[in-house]
């Protein structure tokens, strides 16, 4: 059973939001809807193989579609980062069996290390807060320093570190 910190994290900003990333690109983070589906398929077809983690995203188009069908939809709060009309990042929450939500985030390689991931996660947590969700968790490969730093900076705490992966959790203020 996933553990969560006792203390709640602070406030997170809900979508939509606009900001300028560290490469001076104008970025919009907004809630995703079903019209974004084909654009998301396209984004994952462009996804760099070395950025794949723990078996996702799948590499083939049929696998991508099956996976997106399972991790998007009305029960999965989702935000996308948009630059010049193109989706360059995607973050979502998928409900588990215990009333908590698993978080994942994906940013195209050309848009990484510019602050987009951090804003995607913060905005997704803002959306989660708006919808009354409380417990959010994720797993990350132990050697993925950039991702671990990102999650820590947003307020996630490490809750389990016995294997090759870390499990991290956050408790949102109601």
């Amino acid at each position: 059973m996933t553990q969560f910190p006792d203390d709640t994290a602070g406030e997170f900003p809900p979508p939509p939001r606009e900001f300028t990333d560290r490469e001076d690109r104008s970025v919009t983070v907004r809630t995703a809807d079903e019209d974004d589906y084909e654009a998301l398929v396209g984004m994952y077809l462009d996804f760099h193989p070395e950025d794949r983690a723990q078996g996702i995203p799948p590499s083939r188009e049929d696998g991508i579609r099956d996976w997106l069908d399972a991790v998007t939809g009305p029960e999965c709060p989702t935000v996308v980062a948009v630059v010049d009309g193109d989706i360059v990042g995607h973050a979502m929450l998928v409900p588990d069996q215990d009333g908590a939500y698993e978080l994942a985030i994906f940013v195209l390689q050309a848009y990484q290390s510019a602050g987009i991931g951090t804003e995607l996660v913060r905005t997704l947590l803002g959306l989660a807060q708006q919808e009354g969700l409380v417990r959010v968790w994720l797993t990350v490969e132990r050697w993925n320093d950039a991702a671990v730093r990102l999650y820590h900076s947003v307020g996630f705490e490490t809750t389990e570190e016995s294997g090759l992966e870390l499990e991290m959790g956050i408790r949102l203020a109601a």
């Binding site: 078996g55 996702i56 588990d96």
Partner: peptide, 15 residues
């Protein structure tokens, strides 16, 4: 096994 997100989770024994 797979997490709700679809991530592969190896058991401690497998690792």
């Amino acid at each position: 096994t797979r997490s709700p997100m679809g991530k592969i989770r190896l058991s401690d024994a497998a690792e």
